[in-house]
């Protein structure tokens, strides 16, 4: 099966839903191509708004549309959306509790050699720290579909980060376990719990396969819902496994690792080891090169786990 980018899945769901739901509005900031929204703009010109290179305007216009009954999807590079327009996200989308879905595309280090201006290694931290804002990092296109369908069912603000590249799916067509705001257990095991989000779930799953060969049984948890965080799944893992390893394409601060550690420390003290990007501009390279460099590929994750158990 050919790989489909998560952003493409978003466009597909929105195209389908907007056949009948005329309140859906997609907004872009000279980003329709990289957002895979060109098709939406073509097929639904009356439900598409181009704001030009103006991310702050993008978010506030979305909020304005939303308070007048629209379901606004603001789609723009995660780097700019989560920092440039953070105040608009905080005040207009979240504080006013409007029906705005911020879609951060080309998230994490997707932009590779374009460097730090284009990386969004702090979007979980910025967005999750805003009251009322929900934060999701789906792992593959199948889960992305489910998530967007679920988000269309409510009227609350949220931030969704997806990557730029088509990634190998974690799940199988027709077999995508998904409960809104509940983490998905990708595989079970009681030696170690690997909790990952976004594009890190696939390497975590592959790491579990490597570890299995050495007799290490890893539980892999897909924590696509960063906020509200599925604390139950975390505490269950803390009780049932020996050590927790978190994996994220994010800064070491304020992301998945911090959140998991906070829950574990308060309720079920246990070691939590965080694998993340470093607190510095990342090495130049494509995503895969960057992941390998910092041990965020399957081999790197497996190696770290072996050291721990």
């Amino acid at each position: 099966m050919s790989n489909i980018a998560n952003k493409q899945a978003i466009c597909n769901v929105l195209l389908k839903a907007s056949e009948t739901d005329k309140d859906i509005v997609v907004l872009c900031s000279d980003s329709r191509g990289s957002a895979s929204m060109t098709e939406f703009a073509k097929q639904r010109p009356e439900q598409f708004v181009e704001v030009g290179i103006a991310e702050q305007n993008l978010v506030s216009i979305s909020a304005g549309l939303a308070v007048c009954g629209k379901k606004a999807f603001a789609v723009s590079p995660a780097s700019f959306l989560s920092t440039r327009s953070m105040e608009q996200a905080k005040v207009d989308a979240a504080y006013s509790k409007t029906n705005v879905t911020l879609i951060g595309i080309s998230g994490g280090v997707s932009y590779g050699a374009l460097g730090m201006t284009h990386h969004s290694a702090n979007d979980i931290a910025t967005m999750a720290s805003i009251p009322n804002m929900r934060v999701y990092l789906p792992s593959d296109h199948l889960q992305t579909e489910k998530l967007i369908e679920a988000l269309l069912q409510d009227k609350l603000p949220s931030y969704v980060r997806v990557g730029r590249n088509a990634v190998e799916p974690v799940y199988e067509e027709g077999n995508v376990p998904f409960t809104m705001d509940k983490a998905t257990t990708v595989c079970d095991g009681n030696d170690v719990a690997i909790i990952a989000c976004g594009e890190m779930v696939k390497p975590a799953k592959d790491a579990a396969a490597i570890l299995a060969k050495d007799g290490i049984k890893a539980r892999v948890i897909d924590m696509y819902c960063l906020k509200p965080l599925d604390s139950e799944a975390i505490l269950k893992a803390a009780k049932e496994t020996k050590v927790i390893v978190t994996v994220e394409e994010h800064s070491p601060f304020g992301g998945l690792g911090s959140m998991v550690a906070q829950v574990v420390a308060a309720n079920e003290p246990k070691r939590v080891i965080n694998l993340s990007l470093p607190d510095e501009p990342v090495v130049t390279g494509k995503s895969a090169e960057v992941f390998k460099h910092y041990g965020l590929d399957a081999e790197g994750i497996a190696k770290k786990v072996k050291e721990l158990v």
Binding site: G112, A113, L114, G115, M116, T117, H118, V283, T284, G285, K286, E289, H293
Partner: peptide, 21 residues
Amino acid sequence: SQYGSKFIGHPNNKINGIEMN
């Protein structure tokens, strides 16, 4: 733009001659 290079795809003041990232 290659792996490990200081010449990234945008101006960077690690490089002589560039004032501002």
